[in-house]
Simulated scan of single mutants.
Amino acid sequence: METGNDTQISKFLLLGLSGEPELQPLLFGLFLSMYLITVFGNLLLILAVSSDSHLHTPMYFFLANLSFADICFTTTTVPKMLWNIQVQSKLITYEDCLSQMFFFILFEGLDVFLLTVMSFDRFVAICHPLHYTVIMNPRLCGLLVLVSWITSILNSLLESLLVLQLSFCTHFHIPHFFCELHQMIQLAYSDTFLNDTVMYVSVVLLACCPLSGILYSYSKIISSIYRISSGKYKAFSTCASHLSVVSLFYCTSLGVYLSSAATQSSHTSAVASGMYMVVTPMLNPFIYSLRNRDIKGALMRFSGMAALKGSIVQG
């Protein structure tokens, strides 16, 4: 066995979703298409929000940040997996593994915080409509996003530094397609009590507490909607897209942890993680664009502007 300092020269093996050679082209095509749809869809949403003055509101400001976080969240894992399939290699260096884990935890936490901030925005808009512009002023919106970034970075940095102190064998197999924190801790041969404690405390503080805030916000929203005499559908439709995204995000993430705990199968956990990390960010732009007239209009105007510029350039 090597000492903790010797892990700097280690090379790890990512076992991926399947070791069967005949399935590799199928996995490559499937994940490549989903990754391209995710990047294109979220990037188009960001461009539509930034180019349309009608969408320069707190809700769409948070939505653009969520789309950016989703692009980065998927990019931390999928390109490396596609590269490994293409070159038929499962190797990843210790430095790359640690970097991948750092950015994965960062953008996962950022997703959680942005969804919580967006639920607070809908709570203020529906429960306190007369004070909405005063409460959700540009300064507060920027501060909420900044705090979300700082908290996510600090949490990710703490988790990564604790993993850095662990000792591993010179080579070991990760039964996943990316360097997942829980798998890394399980495969270390040094004492992981502090890592486990910090990880579980982090889950409680940075996942359960935001979820409680989201549930509280929507309980107040639903209560307020039931009290109004007219316009209930219009009031609820303004937050239906966000509620759908929150449900999708937490249901898939909960499925990852439940499948891992119930079956103790690394393959099942890897498949569930693939759904959680690729499918959810891919569907978010469709959910917001299909259920939101403002986004539809902005996308149409943006596509019209792009077509007009293209015709001018050609002329």
Rank of each mutant, 00 (worst) to 15 (best):
L158G: 02
L158M: 14
C169R: 07
H171W: 02
F177K: 10
Q183R: 07
M81W: 13
Y94P: 04
L106N: 04
A64W: 00
L166N: 12
I85V: 12
P79S: 05
F68C: 03
I71M: 05
S190K: 04
Q165S: 12
H182E: 12
L82R: 06
V147S: 01
L110T: 06
F123M: 10
F177E: 02
A64R: 02
T74H: 05
I71A: 01
I85Q: 08
F168H: 13
W149R: 05
S156M: 07
S99A: 10
F107V: 10
F73L: 12
A69L: 02
I105C: 11
T74Y: 02
P138W: 01
I126M: 09
V112C: 11
D111E: 03
H176M: 15
L164R: 14
C141W: 00
I85G: 01
F102G: 07
D111L: 10
L143S: 11
M136Y: 01
S89I: 14
S99T: 15
D70S: 13
M101D: 07
S119V: 08
F107H: 12
N137L: 02
L187T: 09
V117T: 11
V147I: 11
I150Q: 03
S156W: 08
E108H: 06
M136V: 07
S67H: 00
D96R: 09
V112K: 03
A69H: 01
L144R: 02
F178I: 13
I150R: 03
S156H: 08
R122I: 06
C97E: 01
F62I: 00
V112N: 09
L114D: 05
V117L: 01
L140I: 13
S190Y: 02
W83A: 04
M184R: 02
S89M: 09
S119H: 09
F68R: 07
F172Q: 10
H182D: 10
S67R: 00
L181P: 03
N155Q: 15
H173E: 14
I185S: 05
S190T: 15
T75F: 06
W149C: 12
P138M: 04
I185E: 04
